[in-house]
């Protein structure tokens, strides 16, 4: 066979091609993103082995509940899902029962009952139009998927929450708008949500805006990708299996082809 050298050559082309494609794709997917750059934090959940920080998530849930949930819903999350961030059944039941949902009784009347673990998080507004009307026309987006629904979602969210600064003197701020250095266009309908000691953490962590922003982001990152830890864990075993299979099949291939190559 004369192809020993040319095979080598084509292998390299193949590698080059795949690497090039991957680089290209990465360029393309970020090229369309925002031009503002945010501080890049070292999240516990980033990276191949990254996992969520339970304590931070639980504090984040508290921030969500006490600060965000006045305007933002999380309609894709159910109370029962909180088990995954370390709450037991009784805690979840108690947490759920603080909310009420509408139901229809046997007489056909709409009545309220307290929420159960199987219910989805109760949204602050009955529908999108009510949400807009109550917020001067700006729609407070549902937060269930917010980290996945923004490019570089976790860093973006953290930046946005901590990006409220005094507006430059030449900037006119219309009524009902606020200045945020990380928001596209700098004018945002959401007033600054996080202030020093805005919540009182049960575990004694000092509730600085920075801390609260990190915690609520950790919570929302989990809400966007509740499967993430399972996914990465399974991924590691699958990759190990595939590496072994690749090695085995490579040597088996060499064995089978040996007589042909010798000719």
């Amino acid at each position: 066979m004369t192809n020993a050298s040319s095979n080598f050559f084509y292998n390299n082309i193949l590698n080059f091609f795949l690497i090039f494609l991957i680089i290209l794709l990465s360029k393309v997917s970020f090229a369309a993103g925002e031009k503002i750059s945010y501080p890049q934090l070292n999240w516990s959940f980033s990276g191949i082995f990254g996992t969520f920080d339970r304590a931070s998530q639980q504090r984040g849930l508290q921030v969500y509940k006490e600060v965000c949930s006045g305007c933002h819903g999380m309609r894709l999350l159910a109370y029962r899902n909180l088990k995954a961030i370390g709450y037991n059944e009784d805690e979840i039941k108690a947490f759920a029962s603080e909310n009420s949902v509408n139901t229809i009784n046997d007489d056909g009347e709409v009545v309220e009952r307290s929420a159960r673990p199987s219910d989805k998080f109760v949204s602050p507004y009955p529908n999108d139009k009510a949400a807009r009307a109550a917020n001067g026309g700006a729609y407070p987006p549902d937060l269930s998927l917010i980290v996945k629904a923004r490019p570089d979602g976790a860093n973006y969210l953290h930046a946005l929450l901590t990006g409220y600064i005094d507006a430059p003197t030449d900037q006119k701020i219309p009524d009902g708008m606020y200045y945020n250095k990380y928001y596209a266009g700098n004018l945002i309908g959401m007033p600054q949500p996080l202030y020093e000691d805005g919540v009182e953490y049960a575990d004694g962590t000092k509730a600085t805006p920075e801390q609260m922003a990190k915690d609520v982001t950790a919570f929302l990152a989990w809400a966007s990708e509740p499967e993430m830890e399972d996914r990465k864990r399974l991924g590691v075993s699958v990759m190990l299996f595939l590496l072994l299979l690749t090695a085995l099949s490579y040597f088996a291939m060499k064995q089978i082809w040996a007589p042909i190559k010798e000719q």
Binding site: F241, L242, L244, L245, L248, S249, F251, A252, Q255, I256
Partner: peptide
């Protein structure tokens, strides 16, 4: 040795 390698490769693929 050769058969063992080939059989285990296909077995592994089957397990997958």
């Amino acid at each position: 040795k050769r058969d063992f390698l080939i059989i285990s490769t296909y077995a592994m693929a089957g397990i997958g």
